[in-house]
Amino acid sequence: MMAASYSQMFAGRRILIVEDEYLLADETRYRLEQLGAIVVGPTGQIDVALQLIDDEHVDAAILDIHLEGELVFPVAERLVTLDIEFVFASGYDASVLPDKFKGFVLNEKPIDLENIARALFGPKRDLH
């Protein structure tokens, strides 16, 4: 018997998508909804993402690193403060991450929802 796919763990979860490339954000939204997730956003703007985190219940987030010339790290910091799981999804390698985020998963584009689900909902690793 095969083990269940991690991506099934998206079902019923509220996932924030922070991505400034419309087609990629829309494709990710669609794929998450197909897996039963409730999508918050998507948005490609830091201030809107921060407002969504304040206004909506968010279980986890997928964050693009570069958003229209800005870096997503203020959003990541808010998620850490609220103890909300997230992953970075980017075309850049881990060298762009500040030291305090080095332990977080960086999923290179194109987005692999199975790997993201494993990072968000799988067995936790000790980051300290």
Rank of each mutant, 00 (worst) to 15 (best):
F10S: 00
L97N: 03
E56Y: 11
A4P: 02
S90K: 03
I111H: 08
V75I: 04
V48P: 04
I111W: 09
A76P: 01
L67P: 04
G36K: 13
I38W: 13
I15H: 04
P74V: 09
S5H: 09
G44S: 12
T81V: 07
D26F: 14
F88N: 00
V39C: 05
F88Y: 11
D54A: 06
I65V: 12
G103P: 11
K102D: 05
F10T: 07
P123S: 13
D83S: 03
G41A: 06
L67V: 02
K124P: 04
K102V: 05
I62W: 11
D55R: 15
V87A: 11
L63E: 03
K100S: 01
L82I: 03
A94L: 06
S95D: 05
Q34D: 14
H128A: 11
P98A: 00
M2P: 03
L113T: 10
K100R: 08
L32N: 11
L82C: 04
R125L: 10
D126G: 09
Y22I: 00
A119N: 08
A60M: 07
Y30R: 15
A94K: 12
L106M: 12
D47R: 15
A49I: 14
A60S: 07
L63S: 00
A4I: 06
R31L: 13
K109V: 00
M9C: 06
I53A: 03
D99M: 05
P74W: 08
R13K: 15
G69D: 06
F73Q: 01
A89K: 07
G122A: 09
D59L: 07
E27V: 15
G91N: 05
D26N: 10
G41P: 04
V87F: 10
E27Q: 15
I17P: 01
D55N: 13
L113Q: 05
A3D: 01
K100N: 04
Y30W: 14
D54H: 14
E70S: 06
A4F: 10
K124G: 06
E56L: 12
L67C: 04
P123N: 12
